[in-house]
Design a protein around this nucleic acid. Structure first.
Lengths: 121, 121
DNA sequence: ACGATGTTTGAATAACTGTTCAACCATGAA
DNA sequence: TTCATGGTTGAACAGTTATTCAAACATCGT
């Protein structure tokens, strides 16, 4: 959208304080981008399932494949995303690699979201 | 992937307890789907920005357009997604429609996620 | 060194998502 | 009723994403 022809209704004028307060309260753009990037890791059915499984303890890709019914390759691709976005960490043990949730934040988000969808019934 | 030829490594056998515990702890499929559906609403930069802006109070689409620099139409499309997925609610006041965060869960998730990305520096 | 096991990776394809544009609906004022 | 204002909607396009397949890498046992 071009800045020049932003459609501005009268309400924006009336609400100017409100609007300016909202703008002031926004984190900087980079933080918003990081936020969306982090949260977007939760946006896929299979990734959510992987994360939920990891709440009960560390698992290797092969375990996760068995649990979720996904192919090993698909699991590995998704784990890579979860790694990059800091939702999981891993450790090597011989030939196996064990994945676990990165920190409490991830568990907390899953918990709050579970509450939310549970209430909708 | 076909169930029949799921690649199962030895670790799964060794970890059978662990794997079975994880399977047992998983919510039913419908819940996982609802979870992913809810959380996927947080996965876009512009939606996150809208939600962050709404933390400071209710706003109409026109306000949000001014705050985010998005077109009114784009804002409205995103608000629809946020409405359907129960991240925001709205009320009408004459010609204006005011949107606000649906409940504490949404605020909490944003808060936890902000903590998470804040720590990474 | 070799083979087997456990995992990762890149390329390709199919499905999905966000923005724009134009048309439309809803409300209040005249 | 008619007009202007504030919002919504559908179609279309561009960009993104998840899965599969085949090939590769890393580690261990022999």
């Amino acid at each position: 959208m071009k800045e020049s022809d932003a459609p501005v209704c009268r309400v924006v004028e009336k609400n100017r304080e409100r609007v300016e307060a909202a703008v002031a309260s926004l984190p900087d753009d980079e933080t918003v981008m990081k936020l969306a990037d982090f949260l977007s890791a939760f946006s896929d059915y299979t990734r959510v399932k992987i994360l939920l499984a990891l709440r009960s303890g560390e698992l290797c890709p092969c375990d996760i494949s068995a649990i979720t019914g996904m192919s090993i390759s698909a699991v590995s691709h998704q784990l890579r995303i979860l790694r990059y976005k800091k939702l999981v960490k891993y450790r090597r043990e011989g030939r196996n690699i064990y994945y676990s949730l990165h920190d409490r934040h991830v568990e907390e988000i899953l918990g709050v979201a579970l509450e939310h969808v549970g209430e909708g019934e």
